[in-house]
Amino acid sequence: MPRISLTVDGSPVSGDVDVRATLLDALRERFDVTTPKKGCDHGQCGACTVLLDGRRHLTCLSLAVAHDGAEVVTAAGLGEGDELHPVAQAFLDHDGLQCGYCTPGQVCSAVGMLAEADGTPSHATDDLEAETELTDEEIRERMSGNLCRCGAYPGILAAIKEVAR
């Protein structure tokens, strides 16, 4: 079994993983990091989203062995100490969650989205060359890789808008 090392939420972890293990399964089953969720296991829901080397990324479609040395930040590692990350706090304040299963992925995705918005157009962007203005439509499109079956989308939008402001 190959051995991999990762930095997860600021802490180094390492261990042997099955060469077939996805990054998601390695995190959840090998390293007991259950923050990223398994909703579909096929890149169709976004629940497994983490920040991988700073960018939002689906861990279910990544082989662990291909990401040896990577820095992973999950929803659990976003805040400072016991303090919630502003995005997480806004989710809570706007009730941008219900069952909570898609939530860590949504929060990571939102943090990544806000960081990358500047300079990245989206499908919702009219003028590809203009600076990004995070309108409601832009936020919705940029967050569309994270499904929520409970229908917490309006609360999530409100939360992201509050932080983006």
């Binding site: 976004g46 939002r56 569309s144």
Partner: peptide, 8 residues
Amino acid sequence: ASAQIRHQ
């Protein structure tokens, strides 16, 4: 796809 997948 989605932003995540486009990153990948």
